[in-house]
Amino acid sequence: MASEFLIVHWAAPCEEQFEVTVALSSRLPGEYSCPSDTRADLGQLLVERDNSVEAEPWFRAAAMLNDAQAMSNLGTLLADRRDEAEAELWFRAASALGEVNAMFNLGLLLEQQRKTEAERWYRTAAELGLPDAMNNLGRIQAQRGQEREAERWLRAAVAVNCPPAMNNLGILVSTQGDLEEAGRLFRAAAASGDDDAMNNLGAWQAQQGHTAEAERSFRAAANRGHVSAMVNLGDLLRQRGDRREAERWYRAAGQADDTGAIDRLGEMSSEHESERLASLVEHGCVSEKE
């Protein structure tokens, strides 16, 4: 499961405050004189009501008053709608003011194109105690082969109950041969709702010969839209002869442009055609030469 941009959450307001917010949200931020943190609170409440369009001007108004958390949240809204250039500006501004979530978000925004700088921001946020940053820093280090350093950061994140770090640490220790700890980590992360961990738990269970448990884990992740789990579930079903349901899961994954699923559908189509021709030969409808 890919990391998502973080939004800063303040203490939840009471119901009376919420109703006042609903009334105020119909007015423009410039028409309402209030401190920056109140404007940011209004933006947060609107985000929680899935109204990012109306939240943006409130975050922007608070950001213009030098509110670092509002800057970070504004950057998140912009990044989510792919306005990455302006999002980067706000993440950098908030990071300069010490906002740790903005540092993580900046790393996430930069990782695909500027991984070295992204890693620096992850490290800064990790050293300030942000579990998501510890996890992403450990993941990058593990991918680079720096296993000792990666394990240190992943274990630090696991210690504060970060499910993605549990999953990534499970992957790391499994490559080191500790399958027992890997299974415990995958199971803990899956129980916390991590889709990647559900899929990896299924793979671990299948490797251990626990096919029924593997199917449940793959199915749980597949039902939540995890594409690799759809393919893995399809493979398991295909192996036991349930080709119709296997094909259904391959098609679902293929709609998400998974090349492995598309290849498997092609294989199944070829198998079906071979079986059809063999049946025709067996019943004398065509000769083998034909």
Rank of each mutant, 00 (worst) to 15 (best):
T175L: 11
Q141M: 15
E15G: 07
N168M: 02
S228Y: 03
F91V: 07
R148M: 10
S72K: 04
G209F: 12
D132V: 02
D67H: 15
Q239P: 00
Q239F: 10
L45K: 11
L77I: 15
Q44L: 14
A79N: 14
S279D: 13
L6F: 14
Q208T: 00
V160C: 08
R184T: 04
L6E: 13
G138Y: 07
A189E: 11
A191T: 04
G170E: 04
M268K: 00
V286C: 07
A261F: 09
R216C: 13
G202E: 01
R82D: 15
A253Q: 01
A261M: 08
L169Y: 06
E215Y: 09
L28H: 10
I262A: 03
L236E: 00
E247P: 01
A203Y: 14
R244F: 07
Q205C: 07
S25F: 04
G234Y: 00
A55L: 11
D178S: 05
R114L: 11
G177K: 05
S217E: 07
R27H: 13
N136S: 13
T21Y: 08
G138E: 07
V227N: 02
T259P: 01
A40F: 05
I7H: 04
G138P: 08
E149S: 03
L265I: 11
L236W: 01
C14Q: 05
L128G: 10
N232L: 06
V20Q: 12
A126K: 14
D178Q: 03
Q17C: 09
E127P: 01
F18K: 13
M103D: 04
A93K: 15
N105R: 06
W121L: 13
A165I: 04
R224Q: 15
A188F: 13
A61G: 10
E119R: 13
Q207L: 06
N199G: 06
R123A: 04
A278F: 08
E271A: 10
M268I: 09
R148E: 12
H210T: 02
L179D: 06
A214F: 08
N232P: 06
A118G: 09
A229V: 02
W204N: 01
G225I: 15
R184D: 09
H226C: 06
L24D: 06
Y32W: 10
A220H: 04
W10S: 07
Q112Y: 03
D195I: 07
E16D: 15
L109H: 06
R60Y: 12
P164I: 08
E275A: 09
A159I: 08
R123V: 02
R155N: 05
D50W: 14
R238T: 04
S270C: 10
E245K: 06
G75F: 08
G170P: 00
E56G: 03
D80M: 15
E247F: 01
A246N: 02
Q207K: 10
Y250E: 00
L106F: 03
